[in-house]
Amino acid sequence: MKTYNNKAWLLVLPVVLCVAFSAIVPLMTVVNYSVQDILGPDQKVFVGTEWFKLVMRDPELHEALGRQILFSAAVLAIEIPLGILLALALPAQGWRSSLALVLLAMPLLIPQNVVGTIWQIYGRGDIGLAGAALNGLGLDYNYTGDSMDAWLTVLVMDIWHWTPLIALLAFAGLRAIPEAYYQAARIDGASRLAVFRFIQLPKLRGVLLIGLLLRFMDSFMIYTEPFVLTGGGPGNATTFLSQYLTQKAVGQFDLGPAAAFSLIYFLIILLACFVFYSLLQNAGPTEKAEH
């Protein structure tokens, strides 16, 4: 049992102060912006919920939200199974394991805009390997002109970039399973699939939820990579929520609507966060009880 002691607040105080400084002050400002029409530094008009009304009925926003949900769903549906498969295929130890881990983790440490740059080059028909290869195969591939190609390129780029995270998490989770479990399964003559279904998957639940949470949130906020790769185009094909928001706030300088949009965005994230967090909390105790 944990002891009840409110002196623990002294230990968390530095964190609270650090995070509150960067979180609460900007949040308050955004709320202030969202109810005013800001024409200049000294020209502000209170408009109530006008901006919210405008944003909630903005068809472009609905489209961006739809694209965003589709994108996040595709990312999760592909990256999580693929990551698990990779973790299962990784050698458990030895130099092969180290080498594969290092190679696998490489994309994770590449700055977001460099990721965009890499794929921008890689996918081009004239100077990129992938683009040239696809065109060589007779496919008419052009990510700057064709919406479908652009969308798929962004998706493949994200899979390339982030599947390793899931693989690393799942790999670590697999290593935490005691050898005795596998021996017991062998004695019972369990099939490969049964071992996965009844031993590995339940043990991976905790780490996979973390992976799911991180991937959902980060894909929902994706900005830099598609911005560098396609700039949101062609048309609006790869304009996701963050991109649309930044266009509004920075590009068109519509502070009010951008702020209202930010708050709605924040509410969506908050709800998703709560759902995942509750799942995580429920996954926690059962896992601890088994140890």
Partner: peptide, 13 residues
């Protein structure tokens, strides 16, 4: 000043 405070928002917080 840059936070552009308004009374309703202040009341809210």
């Amino acid at each position: 000043a840059w936070m552009a405070w308004t009374t309703p928002v202040a009341v809210f917080f």
